[in-house]
């Protein structure tokens, strides 16, 4: 498959000389650009198995590189570097270094499921993107993404109360990511809204913020979920050779 050859024509792999004659042939200038030869020796042969061991990564081996995922991708339309088809290719080949070039954008998958809808092989690319983003975090290639911080705060709230209170989830998110309690645009928005809302609605908002909704009879449920997640995360850490470090 010729797909990875695009890496060869990156600027750093191209060489041209202002004046160069080889065996009597003038190969100067742009028209005689050379592509540097490349030998790959650093395949990560574990990468596919590791990502397949994380939730959502299970079907990655089914991919036959048709590109329907990238073609339908919401994020690819925003940023052409966001390329699920290519990342799946890299993971299956074990081309870790190449994957790491995009490590800071993979988490941006918005879970619109267009790829999963389009995929003829049931790879579930959306879930593969999430598994890949988690793999990058677990392996220490990236810090915890803003999305993961949000997911964690949200899930903590659900496990604790059975329900979420949106204001609480937001406050936790801003606090954990070190952002001001509300960015200026959000503060303006809230203030604008408060001015025109009926009093009873504001009263309700305030009441929810103070009393935090909770599912009646939630009891042992939260603890049951925590146990399950702990076990699963320990299994996953073991599959990635990270035993002892615990979950994400």
């Amino acid at each position: 498959m010729p797909i990875h050859e695009k890496t060869l024509i990156r600027p750093e792999n191209l060489v041209s000389h202002d004046e160069l004659v080889i065996d009597g042939v003038d190969v100067s200038g742009h028209w005689s650009t050379f592509i540097k030869p490349r030998t790959i020796t650093d395949y990560n042969e574990e990468m596919q198995a590791e990502i397949a061991a994380l939730p959502g990564g299970e079907n990655i081996h089914r991919c036959w590189q048709c590109g329907s995922c990238t073609n339908s991708c919401t994020m690819n339309a925003v940023n052409p570097e966001f390329n699920p088809r290519y990342w799946i290719y890299l993971i299956r080949q074990g081309l870790e270094e190449e994957l790491l070039r995009d490590k800071d954008i993979i988490w941006q998958c918005v879970s619109c499921n267009k790829c999963t809808y389009a995929c003829p092989r049931d790879v579930v690319p959306e879930a593969v993107m999430k598994a890949t983003a988690h793999w990058l975090e677990l392996k220490g290639h990236t810090g915890e993404s803003l999305s993961s911080v949000f997911d964690r705060g949200f899930t903590d709230n659900v496990v604790h109360s059975g329900k979420i209170e949106e204001g609480h989830v937001l406050r936790i998110f801003f606090w954990r990511t070190g952002q001001p309690l509300a960015p200026p645009w959000l503060r303006d928005l809230i203030l604008g809204l408060v001015k025109k809302l009926p009093v009873f609605y504001l009263y309700n908002l305030l009441k929810t913020a103070v009393l935090r909704p909770k599912t009646r009879g939630w009891g042992k449920t939260g603890a049951a979920i925590e146990d399950y997640v702990r076990e699963r995360h320990a299994e996953q850490a073991a599959a990635l050779g990270l035993s002892g470090k615990g979950g994400h």
Binding site: P55, G56, S111, F154, R232
Partner: peptide
């Protein structure tokens, strides 16, 4: 009666089966 959060878009990223349970 006594409903709980379905997991929304977030819990599946912590663990998909927890979302199924919720």
């Amino acid at each position: 009666k006594d409903w709980n959060c379905c997991g929304a878009m977030e819990v599946k990223n912590i663990d998909p089966q927890v979302q199924t349970y919720l």
